[in-house]
Each structure stands twice: as structure tokens, then as C-alpha cells.
């Protein structure tokens, strides 16, 4: 069970690292931001799985904080972009 979950964790991490290519290439800032958003969601999934693998329910709180605050950076980006467009 633990082995299978660990392999899934590796798959998720590789998927994040693959997405980094989009951050490096861009070209739109919106796309880079979007990619960061994907990483946030994937990190939440990894934390959920890790809470099982490491038998540490406290990790759910970490995931909860990620889930709640994921929007802050993106809202900041959209607000500032709207200001620059004006």
C-alpha cells in the first residue's frame, strides 16, 4: 500500500516538474501564474497522500492552509494586471 502510494507521489511530483517548462517558457504572465496554481493543487493532493503514507493527520492542516490561501497570490496578480492595463 505504502509502496503504491509512494509511486503515485513520484508521478505527481514529476507532473509538477514537467509543468515548470511552461513557467520557464511563458510567454504570457497569466500562463505562468496558472501553472503555479496547478502546482498548488497538486501539492494539496501530495499532502493528502503523505498524511496517509506518514500516518500524520496534522498534514491535513497544512493542506487546508494551502487550499485556503491558494487564491491570494492569483487575486493579487489579477488586481495589479488590471491596474497596469488602465
Amino acid at each position: 500500500m505504502i509502496t503504491a502510494l509512494s509511486i503515485i507521489l513520484i508521478v505527481l511530483l514529476v507532473s509538477i516538474l514537467g509543468g515548470l517548462i511552461r513557467v520557464l517558457r511563458g510567454p504570457e504572465p497569466a500562463e505562468r501564474m496558472l501553472a503555479a496554481q496547478l502546482f498548488g493543487t497538486a501539492s494539496v493532493a501530495m499532502l493528502l497522500i503523505l498524511s496517509r503514507v506518514m500516518a500524520m493527520p496534522a498534514l491535513l492542516d497544512v493542506a487546508l492552509v494551502f487550499a485556503l490561501l491558494a487564491a491570494v497570490t492569483l487575486v493579487c496578480f489579477v488586481v495589479l494586471a488590471a491596474k497596469e492595463g488602465r
Binding site: 506518514m54 500524520m56 498534514l59 497570490t73
Partner: peptide
């Protein structure tokens, strides 16, 4: 801008590393 996004991802990965070090 890419620098900033990469730094955010760096933060995400560090948080995961702290988790793996059993430092929630």
C-alpha cells in the same frame, strides 16, 4: 515575472520538504 512564479513554486516544494522532514 518568471522569477517570482519560480520562487512561489520553490516555497511549495520547501513546504513539502519540511513535511518529509517530519516538521509539520
Amino acid at each position: 515575472f518568471a522569477m517570482i512564479v519560480l520562487f512561489i513554486v520553490f516555497g511549495l516544494m520547501s513546504a513539502l520538504a519540511w513535511v518529509r522532514l517530519s516538521a509539520p
